[in-house]
C-alpha cells in the first residue's frame, strides 16, 4: 500500500510509532490483562496526570545531580585532555591508567560512592561524573592530538610561538568540535548513569530514585513506564538542544569540511 507522498517524506516515522502504540494497547488490554506485568499505553499517559505534583520537583533534582556531575567531569576532563593530546609524554604516562579505569561501568562504583560520600547528592553526582568524564576526555585529547601539522606550522610562522599561545590560538579552536561532540556523548552516558545512581538510594528524590524506591516497590508499573518515558524524552531534549545551540551555531565550518 502506498502512503501519501507527504507522509512518506516528512512523517514516515509516525507510522511505525502509531502501529507500535496501538499494538501495545491491544496486547496489554486483551492478552496480558495484568497491569502489574504490562500496563496499557493509555494508563501510562494517565499516569503523567496522576504524577503531576511530583514530576517537576523530581526532574529538577535529577537535573541538579546531572549538572553537578557533568560540570565537574568537564572541568577535569578538558584540561587533562589538552595535556594528553598536546604532550606525547603526558599521554604515554597517563593513558594506561585511564584505559584501566574507563571500562569499569559507573554502576560498579556505587558501593565505593556510598562509602565515600554517604547517601548524599554528591554520591549521585560522582556516579554521573564517572559516566561523563571518559567520553569527554577521549574526545578532547583526540581533538588536540589530531591538529594538522600544517596548521601548527602556519601558526608558528605567523608568530604563534610556545605551547600556551599555540594551544590557545590554533589547537583549541581546531579541537572544539571534537570536545563538543564528546561532551554531548558524555551527557548521554552521564544521564544514563544518573538513573542508576539514584536507583541505589544515593539521593532522596529525583526521577531514578522515585522510579526504583517507590514505583517499583509499590509495583506501580504504569508509573514506572511513565518515568521511563520521561527519562528518555529529557535525554533526547538535552541532546537536541545541545546540538542546536552549540554544534549547529558554532561549528558550521566543520560541517563545511566534512561535507
Amino acid at each position: 500500500m502506498k502512503l501519501p507522498a507527504v507522509l512518506r517524506e516528512k512523517g514516515i516515522w509516525v507510522v511505525p510509532l502509531l502501529i507500535a502504540l496501538v499494538l501495545w494497547e491491544i496486547v496489554a488490554a486483551y492478552v496480558v490483562r495484568n497491569p502489574a506485568l504490562l500496563p496499557r499505553f493509555s494508563e501510562v499517559i494517565f499516569a503523567f496526570y496522576l504524577l503531576r505534583h511530583d514530576i517537576v520537583p523530581d526532574i529538577l533534582v535529577s537535573l541538579l545531580h546531572f549538572t553537578i556531575g557533568l560540570t565537574i567531569a568537564f572541568a577535569l576532563a578538558l584540561p587533562l585532555g589538552i595535556g594528553m593530546g598536546w604532550f606525547r609524554t603526558v599521554f604515554k604516562a597517563v593513558d594506561p591508567i585511564i584505559e584501566i579505569l574507563r571500562p569499569i561501568p559507573p554502576l560498579a562504583w556505587i558501593p565505593l560512592a556510598i562509602v565515600w560520600f554517604h547517601l548524599t547528592h554528591y554520591a549521585a553526582g560522582f556516579i554521573i561524573f564517572l559516566g561523563a568524564f571518559f567520553p569527554i576526555l577521549i574526545g578532547s585529547y583526540t581533538g588536540f592530538r589530531d591538529v594538522p601539522k600544517v596548521l601548527v606550522e602556519t601558526g608558528k610562522v605567523l608568530g604563534c610561538i610556545g605551547h600556551r599561545k599555540m594551544i590557545r590560538h590554533v589547537a583549541f579552536p581546531y579541537a572544539l568540535p571534537s570536545v563538543a561532540t564528546s561532551t554531548r556523548v558524555g551527557m548521554g552516558v552521564g544521564w544514563m548513569s544518573l538513573v542508576a545512581a539514584e536507583m541505589f538510594g544515593v539521593s532522596t528524590s529525583g526521577l531514578g530514585y522515585r522510579l526504583f524506591n517507590e514505583f517499583y516497590y509499590w509495583k506501580q508499573m504504569d508509573f514506572v513506564m511513565a518515568y521511563m518515558l520521561l527519562l528518555g524524552l529529557i535525554s533526547l531534549f538535552l541532546d537536541r538542544v545541545f546540538r542546536h545551540v552549540v554544534e549547529e551555531r558554532f561549528f558550521r565550518w566543520k560541517k563545511g569540511i566534512v561535507k
Binding site: I114, V115, H118, L119, G201, T204, N213, Y217
Partner: peptide
Amino acid sequence: VDLKAMTPSDAASAIGAKAV
C-alpha cells in the same frame, strides 16, 4: 524525616557507618 529504603544488611551497615 529522611526515610531511606534498605535491605536489613544494608541498614545494619548504614547505622554502623553512621550514614543513618
